[in-house]
Design a protein around this nucleic acid. Structure first.
Lengths: 254, 254
DNA sequence: CGGGCCGTTGACCTGGATCAAATGGAGTGG
DNA sequence: CCACTCCATTTGATCCAGGTCAACGGCCCG
């Protein structure tokens, strides 16, 4: 099941057998971590790269007033910062949401594999660029979209990201966030998340029960929140068709 | 004046004379660009790296409904993505806010300088990691902070970033954004931005007129929005003292 | 002098936060 | 098997921060 990473990287570009084999070599000591545990805390100086093999984790910060903001969701195949070493210390924490399987990859192993396999180096770069793109889209999401489309957008994004690592069947995937966690992610109150989910259910767009989310009508959900997948920069998946979906107007000139 | 980049990189770690000289070599054909022009548009496939020498630019997206979201401000010394080449196409646009001086650095020049100067390669890495950190902080800002502190936080951040490239004198810097642009940045309405600025003025925290911002009481403004500069990862500036400012509680354990 | 852009202000109204309480399910222990 | 606890979800009621609409004023520039 740890081919999540390989599979994800191959949605960027195909890898040679050697490269795939080298990637498997990164996965040595797999750790099982309970839900709601910190993997790294703000202020730490990590000396390993973390790779999520299974489960959901998140980057988050807690403001002095207790307000917690989740800034990213990490799903199977996701790294937390391939180059953290360069920074003095973590400026945010990373914690598990569900039970996770995690690998600690020593810095040196990353260095070696990227030296020996330029294709992997490129693919790793791609990962961090995509992470940035996702982050920007989240900013757009929170800053610009109404709560219903905001949540719908998150669900669409996760559908595609999880699809890319083979965690989706019949438009349905495990979605372990509590409503409060969704609230902390989307900058909403938990009460309002509840009502918004109800609305999405009433619209016949989703079904969410017992931590399993089913998207009842993918195309309608995407249209509903004007989801444009370009920012995920997928190439080789069946989702990655290069087309301008829902892209009427261009930026106005000054 | 183009030592903005050098100066910024040296707030990460000192550079040798050779490295500094090589950096200057990157700056060849400087372009002057009017305010409100696109430097790169969504969908483009850029073949140069852009470096801002002077002026303000921004990353933005325009949603199908016309809503515009600014996702980052680029100030002197800022790059737009050192590795865009890896991606198929831009997923957002970059446009100038004020008149800007911009350099187009060919991909090859970047490759060469990083090969010959590992310290610069590290420093470039640091840049992109900091960009990511800033982006995350913006997410926290929009998702978690009330409008007044949100704007105050932006002003604090800019103070420090501009300070790092020598664009601040007497706690005062050029701030070319219109109120509408601030609104598009902060996920607020322009009317409310206006009132919020008035509030900050009334509190005696800032003075903003004719595109020049003066922070009347830096410490009070920082305290006001609970500004924590750790995410900027500055080391060698007088702001970069390594201390846990305003950091009472730790993340709770599950 | 006139037009356009930007900032400012007032009036109104609504979306979403907040508070509070009830329901339901999963686990635990008697 | 039932009682009890702990949490997440659900729902109702209330309130206000901030969006929306509209008008005006100032400034720059042609």
């Amino acid at each position: 099941m740890q081919q999540a990473l390989t599979r994800k990287l191959e949605s960027f570009e195909p890898l040679s057998d050697q490269a795939r084999w080298a990637l498997n070599g990164l996965v040595l000591k797999v750790r099982q971590v309970e839900a709601r545990q910190d993997l790294i805390q703000e202020g730490d100086k990590p000396d390993n790269v973390l790779l999520i093999l299974d489960g959901f984790a998140c980057r988050y910060k807690v403001l002095p007033d207790g307000q917690r903001q989740i800034m990213a969701l990490l799903v199977p195949g996701d790294f937390c910062d391939l180059n953290v070493f360069i920074l003095d210390e973590m400026d945010h924490s990373i914690g598990t949401i569900s039970t996770c399987q995690v690998v600690d990859i020593p810095r040196r192993a990353i260095d070696e594999i990227t030296v020996h396999h330029p294709s992997i180096a490129r693919a790793f770069w791609w990962c961090s660029l995509v992470d940035g793109a996702v982050l920007r889209e989240w900013l757009v999401n929170i800053g610009g979209r109404a709560p219903v489309q905001r949540i719908a957008h998150l669900l669409c994004e996760l559908l595609m990201r999880l699809e890319a690592v083979g965690r989706v069947t019949d438009n349905s995937y495990t979605f372990p966030l509590t409503q409060t966690e969704i609230a902390d992610t989307m900058g909403l109150s938990d009460v309002h998340v509840n009502r918004t989910l109800r609305e999405l259910r009433a619209l016949g767009l989703i079904h969410l029960k017992h931590r399993v989310l089913t998207i009842l009508d993918v195309e309608r959900l995407k249209a509903f929140c004007l989801f444009t997948p370009n920012y995920l920069h997928l190439r080789n998946t069946r989702w990655g068709e290069r087309r301008a979906l829902n892209w009427p107007g261009r930026a106005q000139e000054g």
